[in-house]
Structure formats: structure tokens, C-alpha cells
Amino acid sequence: MSQARDRWPLWEVFTQPKDGAPHEHAGSVHAPDAELALQNARDTYARRGEAVNIWVVPSEAISASTPEDVGPFFDPGNDKPYRHPQFYKGAKGG
């Protein structure tokens, strides 16, 4: 029924809940271009005032790690305590 020429690509939406906070993934919208993606994102994910800023990114532009990466990418490094502040003695008065 639908022709390919009436399909709009998918965009991922990231909203910043308040000034100074990081952007969070809110969901996605379909849009034919960036301007309508921003408007659609604002209407869908921010009409209750939940955001002060919005990013939209074409879904195909996102690269993601896979579950197979868990080991090598995200090894918790419990054997690398020097990465954490608790490893270090604080200087008196500092």
C-alpha cells in the first residue's frame, strides 16, 4: 500500500530535562528532515515542559556497542583500583 517515496526516516530524540543536565534518550520520531524532526520531537516528547533542549539524530547515524563487547569494553576493572579516588590517601587539610 505505501510506496517508498512517502516514507519518512527514523530519528532518535535526546532531551535535556533542565539547564546543566545531560541529554537523555527519550525515544524516536519519523520526519523527512531535521527541522520537522525537531518540531515533532518537541511536540511528542516535550509538550509538558519536560525539556529545555532537544537533539535529533538520524537513527542510522548511531553506532552502538553490542552485547558481545561487554567483556572487553566494559570489564569493571575491580583489579584497577588506581582509577578510583578511594585508592588514594587524602593529605591532611586537603
Binding site: 505505501s2 510506496q3 517515496r5 512517502d6 516514507r7 519518512w8 523527512p32 528532515d33 520537522l36
Partner: peptide, 15 residues
């Protein structure tokens, strides 16, 4: 359908 097509066509033209 014509609306969706129009927006998609405009997007392509401007790309």
C-alpha cells in the same frame, strides 16, 4: 499520502 510524499521530496531536494 500526497502530504508525506511532498515532505519527503522537499527533504530530498534540499539534501
Amino acid at each position: 499520502q500526497w502530504v508525506r510524499e511532498a515532505a519527503a521530496a522537499y527533504g530530498e531536494k534540499h539534501k
